[in-house]
């Protein structure tokens, strides 16, 4: 039983990944050189993980000796990996932070296209959440504050105008579709 009591350490997160709905990597980071040292092994693991998780909306799975927590939306899958002795709720808090930060950065439009359009900011966010396996920040709004720098280039007034324009456009498109049917 003694082996279960791991050395107290801040190194909690083994990896984080965002995959698309074919299981291809959009972004992934592994923090422990001892697991999956090459990118080939990493991608095999990701494929395997994706195959086991993309249909079952189950939130948590044990795979290859790692505890993986996950969450999905439309065509994106978010994963956080930790050792099998790790506190699952800590991993979950990291996952929620990752998801919520991305969601806030993309203004609730969590899908593949939007992530790719703001890839630089999403990269910065991942870097702010976890540094070399240590949880740096687990509060989404504070992470976004540290990275979402472009939002402040648009003054608030213009932002609302831009948003209502989008609403107008989508209404137009919907009308088009209903006419086409």
């Amino acid at each position: 039983m003694d082996g279960q009591l791991a050395e107290p350490t801040l190194y909690t997160v083994k990896g984080m990944a965002i995959l698309d709905n074919d299981g291809n990597r959009i972004l992934a980071k592994y923090y422990d050189k001892n697991i999956f040292p090459t990118s080939k092994e990493q991608k095999t693991f990701e494929k395997n993980l994706f195959n086991k998780t993309h249909r079952a909306n189950a939130e948590i799975i044990m795979l290859d000796g790692l505890t993986c927590v996950y969450r999905s939306n439309v065509d994106l899958f978010f994963y956080v990996m930790g050792s099998s002795h790790e506190n699952e709720l800590i991993l979950m808090s990291v996952l929620n932070c990752l998801y919520d930060s991305v969601s806030q950065i993309l203004r609730k439009n969590v899908e593949r296209k939007a992530v790719l359009d703001s890839l630089d900011i999403v990269m910065l966010a991942m870097d702010e959440i976890c540094d070399g396996g240590i949880i740096l920040d687990a509060d989404a709004s504070s992470v976004v504050q540290r990275v979402a720098l472009r939002t402040d280039d648009i003054p608030l007034g213009e932002q609302t105008v831009a948003q209502s324009l989008i609403v107008l456009q989508s209404a137009k498109e919907q009308l088009k579709w209903s006419l086409l049917k």
Binding site: K29, S39, K40, K43, L119, D120, M123
Partner: peptide, 15 residues
């Protein structure tokens, strides 16, 4: 430049 740098970082991230 930010866009090009993002591309480099993306390539590195893809292995």
């Amino acid at each position: 430049c930010a866009h090009i740098l993002t591309k480099i970082l993306y390539l590195l991230n893809q292995g």
